[in-house]
Design a binder for these strands. Structure first.
Lengths: 342, 342
DNA sequence: CTGTTAGCGCGTTCAT
DNA sequence: ATGAACGCGCTAACAG
């Protein structure tokens, strides 16, 4: 049998209101009674019913993380695990629970989000997808539900968001290679419809531009095609006349594939091709050779996301009063894959 | 302003009860009225308040996944990501939401679990940790809350659990190497306090025993020490007099380290040392050479976990009536790392 | 300071 | 087939 406030009240010989007051820490209760009630609560093993609480307070102390639709490939990415870990940590520090949800299609996502928010099951959303045009963001924005975007949206610039400065990160990665003496630097791009991909490409170009170096379309390899026909793409790339001596790759996983193929082709990293990539997954260190990678502090990104969202939920009046865009500083971890050839 | 049943009722000129009946799909409502109410619900954009619903029904249609504390998180994030993916998929197919939670210490975990269950925020728990002696399991079991353990507990054998037959998996991995002609086979173990580790070690031994082969304590390397002083351990191992020609490693990540060190020591895989490991992470295929690995179908494990738990929640009367232990079949993926040396 | 009352939005009796 | 009334467990308004 569950222990309710009613029982505690009866057992302590006081009214329910008093018990409630003790629970919520109101001070207008005689010290003596307060102690007694607390003792009885302990004795009976009372735990407040959060559901009832949120029915009346209209807040649930929980937020939902909406995972990107076709969870299949994205999910297996270490990125999301790390992010979620950060989100959970940040939220639980503030007493919030995390609900994980996802929808197969965009329509389904909208349905889920609407149910959750209108049904008052969660107080806010963390959106992880970052397509150019996102119906979910549109929905959340127009209905002014509290939410934070992990990533960036071109369309709405006033929205609360947490992000890495991907352009700058790519700029730094490229500059590092330039510092190492490379003058012909290639690029392995990510999926074209993601903003991240465009930002990184931009950073890469800017770095070359600022250093007076050139780049050619043939130096840019589509990352996705590597998964299927990695061998051919890399082979073609390495046979380019006057080919690049270094490469900026958009993801550590992709870099793994690249290195593997290069080995099969009897090329040496970094001697024949130096590489810097992104995300700094744990395995980057274990690779042969270890991979230089931009650490984007994904865990911190997640923690920050939940914290700013909760802040917004608890103090909606601060909207537009403080800044809406939070950038987590990245960091280049230099390893062997980008070292100077000796 | 939120749309409640009250409003729908007023707008439709019927009582709240009727609206409720329509919503829950009861058939004792005149077709005509049912349609009208449904139309109005659509019109007004009504979404049932899940919180109120669960207050009265005493069920939340959501379950909680308790993530292991920071201690083990290093071991293999990929495992948990894949597992959670399966859990979310399995749960959402049945209309359940997933709450993610974790505690830094065991005490904190207990606190969280207790809050969630007694506070009726979730209907059940999925427990991922699998120490020999787990306070959380003890708590859940004695209070007879619905829960499922992903893994195995020696202490309580009647509890609902989903698992891989790790012993059998290790047996199969070892047998595979034996089939390949190896007679001296080493083993890289996992953390000693995990049941998984012991099971796998057992399977390894049994395989050797059944084939009349010997094993020596020096052939068993502590996996954790590899992370720190991998170089030394492996070097020692390879310099053993009459050393093993093959190795069963407890995890793909560990295998990565091993292969890396072997390369530095100028040994060849599989020629100098054949390796089979566990989990079949995506990168196993991309390794040089590709790693033979036991695929434990982690996604299916997760999906199964949420489904049996929900089954138990919805039909508690079936307890002890059906089996409580579900095994997901594993599968050996043979790749180059265990191929016959030519 | 404390107890009484009135909901939060919904399901579930009872009657009718 | 339908409506009125009550209660889930809790908070907040009002009295005293």
């Amino acid at each position: 049998m569950t222990v309710t406030m009613k029982k505690v009240a009866r057992r302590a010989g006081v009214s329910i209101s008093t018990v409630s007051r003790v629970l919520s820490g109101h001070l207008n209760v005689r010290e003596e009674i307060s102690c007694k009630v607390k003792r009885i609560m302990k004795e009976l093993g009372y735990t407040p019913n959060i559901i009832a609480k949120s029915l009346v307070s209209k807040t649930t102390n929980s937020i939902c993380v909406l995972l990107p639709g076709p969870a299949e490939e994205l999910f297996s990415n270490l990125f999301f695990m790390e992010l979620i870990r950060g989100i959970v940590a940040g939220a639980s520090r503030l007493g919030f629970d995390i609900l994980i949800s996802s929808g197969a299609t965009e329509q389904e996502e909208l349905e889920v989000v609407s149910q959750l928010l209108k049904g008052r099951r969660v107080d806010g959303m963390i959106v992880l997808s970052s397509h150019y045009d996102d119906a979910v963001i549109e929905y959340l924005n127009t209905n002014s539900y509290p939410f934070v975007l992990v990533g960036r949206s071109d369309k709405y610039d006033g929205i609360l968001s947490v992000d890495t400065n991907h352009s700058m990160a790519a700029y730094d990665a490229t500059s590092h290679l330039i510092t190492m003496g490379h003058e012909r630097i290639g690029f392995v791009s990510g999926p074209q419809d993601l903003i991240v991909s465009r930002d990184r490409l931009e950073g890469y170009r800017n770095a070359l531009l600022d250093h007076g170096l050139e780049w050619y379309p043939e130096w840019i390899v589509e990352g996705e095609s590597l998964q299927d026909s990695g061998y051919g793409s890399i082979s073609d790339f390495m046979n380019l006349p006057n080919r690049p001596t270094a490469l900026v790759a958009v993801d550590d996983m992709v870099t793994f594939s690249v290195i593997r193929v290069l080995k099969q082709l009897k090329y040496k990293v970094p001697d024949d091709l130096a590489i810097v990539s992104f995300n700094n997954i744990p395995l980057a260190e274990l690779s042969v050779p270890p991979i230089s990678s931009i650490d984007t502090r994904i865990y911190d990104l997640g923690a920050m996301a939940s914290q700013v969202l909760i802040q917004r939920i608890q103090h909606p009046e601060h909207e537009n009063q403080y800044k809406n865009r939070f950038i987590i500083a990245h960091q280049l971890i230099e390893r062997e894959s980008s070292m100077l050839a000796m």
